[in-house]
Design a protein around this nucleic acid. Structure first.
Lengths: 197, 197, 197, 197
DNA sequence: TGGTAATCGAGACGGTACGTCCCGTCTTAAG
DNA sequence: CTTAAGACGGGACGTACCGTCTCGATTACCA
């Protein structure tokens, strides 16, 4: 009878379903790859109606952005040992470990793919290991500069992008998984400038 | 039946149609993006039956590998000025010019996307600006090492990959097109090691 | 719980809501047609939860049976003038007037449609202008026979069905609404046997 | 190369599939009823893609109009014995036999249902046993008038509609199938005017 | 120069997934 | 403790392309 809805009756998504769907999506990628993972299949795998997925995520990329964030929680990767090289190595090693353990790498690669034509996905991907999470890279580097461990003119921005770029290149192109050695190598080459052996 | 005679069994495929299809494919990407460019649409645009496309290319990625090679002819990018930095800058500037003029960048990005799930596409992409065309990068670099312009231990392989990675990152992620300035910057940072300003 | 006491266990269903829903259902049919009138839409139109409708009516046809009975109250159509032809003409003219004024005809046609597959609807429809309301037709006719105005052997049952059949045919098939002239014509042809002009 | 399509390349629908689909549709109605017969189910039953149905029929009613015409071929019902009562009885008996043997009656009832909201279906239904096929009824009746077997002023049009109406009423409402006796009864009551049996 | 075979456009075909709509049931918060 | 609002599993909708297939109609070689 009241003609004015007091509160907009906030959506009451079931947290359990929510998690079930994210898990089913991750499984589907692990099983069939990002591309073959269809909304229809994920719904079936989760024992959920398709509409329940479309209700909460406007598109497949949007869903997988959340899957990625779920698989790669940013907080778990922070480190501050006092040594910028150690910090970065730890960060990358942790990230690569997740990539080896979960389908996160395939998800990210798939999102990069979608980003080409889905502007929303593009934004999300830029947040995926670029803008949003760039703090993960820029903060330790900035600390390194502040501490004097890195040269005063050190280009933190460019280096962050370069690290991201090299990782993506390996994800998209590489056949072999990323290892701790790759983390060390990346730090050595890009931060210490030891390109020439 | 064929007696493997003098003429190699007469290729009936008309070169004109062949080019028409490649052009239609490029147009379709320019118009709608890689993903929305369907075989069906390309066939219609080219005034050709779908089968004619499938006769010559087993899949969409296979078609676009050829489109890419058509748009970015490797020979046009060679340079040997005697200076490795100039060579590389010229190479990259030429490449970026093509990326600005044609849908080649969108094609490459699309192929990278397909590469995630289509092994044939993956191989093709690795050839697209990695293995096959890596000579484009490794040869000038090797000359630079031989000439003494680059340090003896300079890691040509890693540097080639890094250049590719950074370009891809910009293609997949960047909003702004690559320019001559970007070519200079890349050479400065990765080859001259001028990361710190 | 209910002690079958003085008051019959207090009907919680508010008569106001009840009427609101019936009205919303009628409006929905008037606006979009029987088929496009969904429970979901009626609930929204009535400002009522879907459950509230399902609580009171097991199905869409069940709801519309009540809507029909609400739009076409049987008592309003009775007449006993002493002349069977006048009685029938009055009855039909009154019915047709309702059909022109309200969506009752579309509701009945829709129910006939539902009746094909919904046994409950079928029963309801047979009551809609056949068994239950047949009294409306058979009673005046029987009086006519008793009074001697119709032949002794006059088949009241068959004639009632025939009248119903012809009306339905016009409802389901006719493009033009039923008029007073149609009422007169029906009586002339079927009761007076004036088929041959 | 020729810019002018010589012939509009007439559609080449496979006659075999066409028949398979009609048969599957009839079976589906027989098995589950008109309403529960979905395009999806018919396609599966026929071993055919949904698109193949949608390619040739714009809607479910359109499909079933053709199914009805296939089940009730008008030519098979003609008769001209020289006696209008015999002709009509034969026609109706033949029709009712088909209704007992095939799901044609359920199809017609379903179409009548759809006709309420689908204008195309409405047109088709009017053709189904009214306008188009009305010749089936009007022609023998007209012959009867011409022969003098029916009164000169006999209203052929009205009688045709009345016959149709009564049949439909039985189809939509009746529980028992129509029999030869019903055919005789209909002729007796409506043509011979023996209502007062 | 007329046969004959391949190649072509067109598009029908079985199929899969899309994203939407509504069903009838179940859950939650506010009154 | 009832109600509106609406989330939920489910199932069909009608559409878009996929990659395969079958048609005639060119077309270009060969006899």
């Amino acid at each position: 009878m009241s003609t004015v809805a007091t509160t907009p009756a906030r959506l009451r998504r079931s947290p359990a379903k929510h998690r079930t769907i994210l898990a089913a999506a991750a499984e589907a990628v692990a099983a069939d790859g990002y591309d073959a993972a269809t909304i229809e299949g994920i719904a079936a795998r989760a024992g959920v109606g398709k509409q329940t997925i479309y209700r909460w995520w406007p598109s497949k990329p949007a869903l997988f952005v959340e899957v990625y964030n779920h698989l790669v929680p940013p907080d778990a990767l922070q480190a501050d040992t006092g040594d910028v090289f150690d910090d970065l190595e730890a960060l990358l090693a942790g990230l690569f470990a997740i990539y080896r353990r979960t389908p996160a790498a395939r998800v990210l690669a798939g999102l990069v793919a979608d980003a080409e034509h889905d502007p929303a996905a593009a934004d999300a991907v830029r947040g995926g290991l670029v803008i949003g999470r760039r703090g993960l890279l820029t903060e330790p580097l900035t600390r390194g500069v502040d501490r004097g461990q890195l040269a005063a003119g050190f280009d933190v921005e460019w280096t962050s992008d370069a690290v991201t770029a090299l990782i993506w290149h390996r994800l998209l192109c590489g056949r072999v998984p990323l290892t701790d050695a790759d983390a060390r190598d990346l730090v050595a080459k890009l931060l210490r400038g030891r390109v020439a052996g």
